[in-house]
Design a binder for these strands. Structure first.
Lengths: 175, 175
DNA sequence: TCCTATAGCTTAGTATTCTAAGTATATAGG
DNA sequence: CCTATATACTTAGAATACTAAGCTATAGGA
């Protein structure tokens, strides 16, 4: 190790674990979350594709089952996607006959998204598929363990969101 | 709800929660994992980009810091990407001067991947960045809670991998 | 009122990842 | 030794997601 590098290495001493610990992906929450997400998503898609619903589309449908008729922007936020992603996804959903878009005279910028009757009915078929993957994912775990996992993940999300907000404020100041 | 639909709805009764429960993304492990992964990844990339390393590249570098000189296929498996993804990523890494590829006469199909001295040195700078995001992500959590989170995620991964293997065997039988 | 800033959506271009199918090399059974 | 199968990698094409930069429409002061 070159001499100057120690300054960087030293910084890790205040951490929960030294930096080397996280070099092993198995210890990295980011890596573990990625694998959980991908495996979950692939298994779910395998089922939903039978109804011509991709994993990406599923995410939008799920939110619309919860709140039909929200604006495109609101939908983006809830689903956790950026707006251009939503534009493309909605194009696909509209073409596939899952949603319709409606404008009002009230505020002509806004576009409201509505499920078609067909997409509404799909909830009865697709929602149980998600529940099923959940069952598989949490096999052998107690209800308490599942709740612990969910609440710890939510806390991580909150922590990361705080940091992201902090950085956003900083860059606003600069701008 | 149409009459015939009850057959599907009924199926949910044996689950930990009814299907409607998972319609709320906040209760879905898949959704939570996606948000953790994306937030984590974005914050990390913000730091690594200063060294011209994207989030995708970081994943490959991390594995190579752990095991230099493995084959392309082994690398794919360890990182959890499909091979075509690895091909593209390695092209970028090679172009950027982070890795070199080497063939042997021993088995001319295999390509071994080696870090350049520059990429090796980067570990000292980049590994602490990951540790730092980890600190942020787990702020306010005890060491025990962090370990619980990791081990629960590993169990979910194992469960989903079991299921995926089961399906692979089934489709092998068919083929 | 008018001018500027903001909000909502779109377009363009790029990166990352996947599946399916193809090529080249190695291995194993007849 | 030849053919079938398996392994390692590549190519092609598509889906998903992003950033940056645009367009309208609205809102909020001067």
């Amino acid at each position: 190790m070159a001499e100057g590098d120690w300054k960087l290495a030293k910084k890790t001493q205040s951490y929960r674990h030294p930096a080397e610990f996280y070099t092993n992906p198995e210890n990295s929450i980011g890596y573990l979350a990625r694998v959980v997400f991908r495996s979950f998503s692939r298994l779910l898609e395998r089922r939903t594709l039978a109804y011509d619903v991709s994993a990406g589309q599923w995410r939008f449908l799920r939110q619309l089952w919860l709140e039909d008729g929200i604006t495109q922007r609101e939908l983006s936020e809830r689903v956790g996607m950026r707006e251009p992603t939503t534009v493309v996804a909605l194009k696909g959903l509209e073409k596939a006959g899952f949603i319709t878009r409606r404008k009002t005279e009230d505020d002509r910028r806004k576009t409201f998204i509505f499920l078609t009757p067909h997409a509404k009915k799909l909830e009865l078929t697709l929602a149980p598929m998600n529940a099923e993957i959940h069952e598989i994912a949490t096999r052998g775990m107690t209800d308490e363990e599942v709740e612990t996992l969910q609440s710890l993940m939510r806390r991580v999300i909150e922590n990361l969101a705080d940091e992201t907000r902090k950085l956003a404020v900083l860059s606003d100041v600069k701008a």
